[in-house]
Amino acid sequence: MCARGYAKMGNMPQPNPWFSSPADAATRLAEAGYLADPTTATTAYLAGALEKPLLVEGPAGVGKTELAKAVATVTGAELVRLQCYEGLDEARALYEWNYKKQLLRIQSSQGSDQEWSATHDDIFTDEFLLTRPLLTAIRREEPTVLLIDEVDKTDVEVEGLLLEVLSDFQVTIPELGTVAAVRRPFVVLTSNATRELSEAVKRRCLYLHLDYPDAEREREIVTSQVPDLEERVAVRLVETITRLRELELKKAPSIAESVDWARTLVALEIGELDDKAIADTLGVVLKHASDQAKAVKELRLRS
């Protein structure tokens, strides 16, 4: 039997390694370079305090994954990541028996007069278990941040698998019994909302919608990531980005793209973001020809 499997939650109260208050969450996340708005900070604090999974939804590139990484960095926890994709199954998400090793074990015991039942007990032990991210996160004794990235990409069946893990923080392995978490991980699920997640998953999670930040915060983010950028250019850049997001584009520019744009401007040593400079570097932020055409028309870049 798995030795640490049976430690029940609550038997030994452990100090909560996460945040002590919403304000504490905000300041510590800022130390890791993640500028969180009050709502994000409050929700991150609650996820730690209530020990509930946190579902983060929002458009691509607003820092959903970064939030999980920042939490891991500031709390000194290790990040265990499960990247979801279509066709992800139990064997990749949870655990798998190392059947090649099991086969070897059976073959090597054939010569000796060991009983079959003994061999059977032997090959279904911890030694032959390959743990995948979900089981790894649950069995770790040190603080852990479990990031389940892009949940909406998985099939509906995987959601069912997540339910047991997210509500009770335990995994049932038929041959071993139930493995319960020694210490609940800080779980972050991210989703681009390409698919509506099931009510059951949502009910078990706290919900946070991350959207594009306001102009002030975005400027702070850009200048903290690209310190070489001149203040004046940063203001103009954020204004342009905000304006671009108001247009109905196929793909609105994300925060990651505004940072990229700032880096481009610094690399090209453009000190003044005038219409010509915007038109020349527009490819960094807009990746569709029709979006670019529209932006040029709406911003009247080439009249």
Binding site: P22, L46, Y207
Partner: peptide, 14 residues
């Protein structure tokens, strides 16, 4: 803060 707390626990659709 209270509003954010309520929103995180009760509202699961933007």
């Amino acid at each position: 803060t209270i509003q954010a707390g309520y929103a995180a626990t009760l509202v699961k659709k933007q």
